[in-house]
Amino acid sequence: MLAQVDSPARHGRYAWSPLPDRPVWDWPDGKRLAVYIGTNLEVFDFGRGRGAELAPGGGDPDVLNYSWRDWGNRVGAWRLLETLDALGLPTSVIANSRVLEECPGLVEAFLARGDELVGHGRTNAERQADLSEDDERALIAEATAVYADRAGRRPAGWLGPWISQSHVTPDLLDEAGYDYLLDWAHDDQPTWFATRSGRILSVPYPQELNDIPAVVARQVSGQGFADMVVATFDELLEQSRSAPLVMGIAVHPYVVGHPHRLRPLRAALAHVAAHRDDVWLTTAGAVAAHAAAVLP
């Protein structure tokens, strides 16, 4: 008698779809490669909760790593802002709602440039997946209310702190009126996700071109990360001749804002900006809005 095998666990959000079999369409002005920069502005709890580590902190309160992360909002973000201004590059500001309360003027400085605001939970000291459905719904509602009150707008998109989703996160975001989410890195094109109330769009968010996995986890150098940006851009520009693609670059000011990383990153972004006639330099929200109109 054969032993009973459990059926495989599936998420049921999207179907299998190989890239070569999909319809070919264009981004605005006939472009085939959309490039956006996701600038993560985050706050953390002192002496508790989660947080990226530059080095082992040796217990709480972890002054070493807490102050390293706090430097990003006080100094690094402003250096990155100057770089984006100098190169004429837009960005999607992926901000914890508490940044608006604890760092007044920071998010506003990006929004004054016309940049997009993306929801990113309350703080990066917590994970959505650790919450009950009711508590997660309350988190989304609380953060959205802060964005509307402090920034004067509610975001169209959402990225969970620590790329953390529960089994119902896409459903809750759809029900809360969000148009797209950024947590999944499963494709180079936007994908419709099924939800219990309808659907929500998934826009590709990078885990390779992301300074936390690259620099903090794999200890890639600043120059190495910049080289990754250039190599990815050049390769995707060629690949986009046969299909519309999305290239995201995810940065955190407390990582890439430091001078030895910012300088090579600035050169890499200048390489991208020099091709502005060949690609669509945009935001994640603009990618979502265009894709929603053309995707079957």
Results as ranks from 00 to 15, higher is better:
V203G: 05
V251N: 02
A243L: 04
V255Q: 06
V168M: 03
L159C: 12
R196H: 12
D277H: 08
Q219T: 15
S202P: 01
L262R: 14
D188M: 04
W192F: 11
T283P: 06
L245P: 05
R263D: 04
L236D: 06
Q239A: 15
R218W: 11
L209G: 09
L209R: 04
P253R: 01
L201A: 08
G157W: 02
Q239D: 09
P244Y: 08
D179I: 03
T232S: 15
D174P: 02
G177E: 07
A231E: 13
V256D: 12
E175T: 01
E235L: 14
A217V: 13
R261H: 13
I249E: 04
A286W: 00
F233R: 07
A273G: 09
T282M: 11
H186G: 00
S197G: 10
A288D: 06
M228Y: 04
A185W: 04
Q219V: 09
A268V: 08
R153N: 02
V229C: 09
Y180L: 14
I212W: 10
G257H: 07
T195D: 01
H252S: 12
V203K: 08
H186V: 11
V246P: 01
Y205I: 05
R266C: 05
H275T: 09
T195N: 02
A273L: 01
Q223C: 02
T169F: 01
L245I: 05
T195W: 00
R276A: 12
H260L: 12
V229E: 04
A231P: 00
Q219C: 14
A217L: 15
A156V: 04
V168D: 09
Y254T: 12
P190S: 06
A274W: 01
A243R: 07
A268M: 09
L245Y: 03
V256M: 15
F233Q: 13
A176W: 04
R199S: 10
D211E: 12
R241M: 08
R263S: 07
V215G: 11
D227R: 14
A273I: 01
N210H: 06
H167W: 14
F193L: 15
D278I: 04
E235W: 13
Q223I: 00
I249K: 08
P253D: 00
V272P: 12
I163S: 11
T232I: 00
F225A: 06
M228I: 02
P170M: 07
D174L: 03
D149H: 11
R266P: 01
H252I: 14
G222V: 01
G222K: 01
D234R: 14
D174W: 01
D183M: 03
G177N: 07
A268P: 11
F233P: 12
T191I: 14
A226Q: 07
